[in-house]
Amino acid sequence: MKELALSVKNLSFQYPNQPKESVRNVTFQVRKGEWVALVGHNGSGKSTVAKLLMGLLKAKSGVIKIFDTILNEETIWDIRKRMGIVFQNPDNQFVGTTVQDDVAFGLENNGVPREQMIERVRAAIQQVGMEEFLLKEPHYLSGGQKQRVAIAGIIALQPDLIILDEATSMLDPKGRREVLEAIYNLNIKQNMTVISITHDLEEVVKADKVIVMNEGEVIAEGTPLQIFSLGEKLEEIRLDLPFVMKVRNELKKVGFPLQLNSVTLEELVDELWTLYLNK
């Protein structure tokens, strides 16, 4: 069993002047190297949980442990050195005049030696496929390219845990695909622990685990397939099934004998092709 990267136990939070808690008794775990998606509609409490994990809010009750260290005022700065956070709007994270300078910024602040810094910057930019944009100004890039640069800046710092707070919500479909592919490669090839906060179930098909929140509480937890199988229950809390699952369900209704647990487009195409060949 892999060691825990994050443990949340009985977490609750209430905003001032609000009649009830925004987060109530939330408990879940994330193991090292996992990609866990925290999903829910606007107002479900997922973004509040993200702020609590980042130490931007202080919990009313409960315990957050990150790599076996309890998150509190004394430990927050040491913990943040092991975390990388990518926000909704990448423009708010840019400080450098070029892509290369921006990715190097955090390393310079941490006093990383120049030769090591150059190597880490180039490696990070290569991992997100932005090598040809090294000397470009970040603000002239597309949305997906900007977010990949923001992710490169986090990769260069070599954190143990990355939190993505609605990191694709402002992107077009192409930009969303680019960012999700970069995240997937980090998770698989670098064994990076990833927590993604999102309202879009299309983004969670490759996650190891999905945690569903509604009205401040965790209402379901499981693999993407287990969560997608909830069907109408997800629609009741204003979450829409991914396109592939909708197509799969319609195909089964008209008689296609689909048996495999395909949740991605590639898997569904392979399953349909196998059925065709075995006719």
Rank of each mutant, 00 (worst) to 15 (best):
E221Y: 00
G216T: 06
F133W: 14
F228R: 05
V210S: 09
F243Y: 10
A207W: 11
L239I: 09
K136W: 10
K209S: 07
G144N: 02
E166Q: 08
R148Q: 13
L171R: 07
H139D: 03
K209F: 04
S169K: 10
V210M: 06
K206D: 05
L141Q: 12
K189H: 07
R248V: 13
S196P: 04
A220C: 06
G144A: 02
I195E: 09
I237N: 04
L230C: 01
L241V: 06
F228T: 13
E181I: 09
K233H: 07
H139F: 14
I227D: 02
D160V: 03
K136D: 14
K209C: 09
L157D: 03
V218T: 13
N187E: 00
I154C: 02
S142K: 06
K209L: 07
L134K: 12
Y140W: 13
R176Q: 14
R238V: 04
I188E: 12
N214S: 13
A207R: 13
V244F: 05
F243T: 13
V212Y: 08
K209A: 08
T223L: 01
D208I: 13
A156K: 12
R148L: 07
A167Y: 09
L135H: 14
L157F: 00
G144M: 05
K136H: 15
R248G: 08
L171K: 08
K233E: 14
F133V: 09
P242D: 08
G175K: 11
V212A: 01
G144V: 11
I195P: 08
E236Q: 15
P173W: 08
E232Q: 14
K233S: 10
Q158K: 15
I237P: 02
R238K: 15
G153R: 05
E137S: 14
F228G: 01
D160C: 01
I163H: 00
G144I: 14
K233L: 02
A152S: 08
E232P: 02
R148F: 05
Q190W: 15
N187M: 02
V212H: 04
L180P: 10
V210Y: 05
S196R: 11
K189C: 00
D208G: 10
G144S: 04
A150Y: 07
G216A: 03
V205C: 03
E232F: 02
I183W: 01
V212T: 06
E250S: 10
Q226E: 15
L230G: 01
S196K: 12
N249R: 15
R238M: 06
G216L: 02
A220H: 13
